[in-house]
Design a protein around this nucleic acid. Structure first.
Lengths: 111, 111
DNA sequence: TCGACATTTCAAATATCATTGAAACATGAA
DNA sequence: TTCATGTTTCAATGATATTTGAAATGTCGA
């Protein structure tokens, strides 16, 4: 993943409405949710919702598929995992980190 | 981690200069880097750098400590791990995801 | 075809963010 | 104290993002 893609992905998630949308899709799993259902869950107005969904889609964080008059959105889990990997990439210059100091290893305190 | 903190953390990273700063600090490890050194590595002007460092600090993604006339910044690895955990939290509603479809498990394709 | 529903597009207004340069502050050395 | 260095603050400018409402598009059922 390149820096620009990472910035785009982070920017897509760095917004209250979009983060709520994305989390709803993550929790919904691969089956996804219809746009209207997302609107119900998040309380976002249709036009604003569409704007944010397009933003997320353009950043590659969600995919969509038409199903009748519904449009089903789902989280792009591969993109999410790529982003997580990017953030920890080359951590501590590749050297192993001291395990007692809350460092690179993602098994630390995740709260 | 609460939603607002996550949005703040993501917004802090969703900017080319700040992402570059943060990655430099991640690669530097717990020892951190002086502000001036970060400026050298990233090519960011001092006042702009200070602005972004304050932004990252306010979001809890970096810590700082005075060392003589230098100010040493270091990545807050615990905060980073908390953010990563937040994004995958409650994935697929808690149900185990089908492993062959690039889903929740972070061992998929991280590129 | 017609009407109802789901979603998207458009334009305008508001708000927020990033960059710049100059100046101020703090620290250490002479 | 005085000077040089490292870092931060401030104000102004330009750029970008978000929201809103109305209208348009596309799809299904009768």
């Amino acid at each position: 993943m390149k820096t620009k893609a990472a910035v785009a992905a982070l920017a897509a998630l760095a917004q209250e409405s979009r983060l709520a949308i994305f989390r709803a899709l993550v929790q919904a799993g691969p089956a996804g949710l219809a746009a209207g259902r997302i609107g119900e869950l998040t309380g976002i107005a249709p036009s604003s919702l569409s704007f944010h969904l397009k933003e997320l889609s353009h950043a590659g964080m969600v995919d969509s598929q038409q199903a009748g008059r519904f449009v089903i959105y789902n989280a792009n889990f591969a993109a999410m995992n790529a982003l997580l990997g990017f953030l920890t990439e080359n951590c501590c210059g590749g050297h192993p980190c001291t395990p007692g100091e809350s460092v690179c290893a993602p098994s630390d305190e995740a709260a």
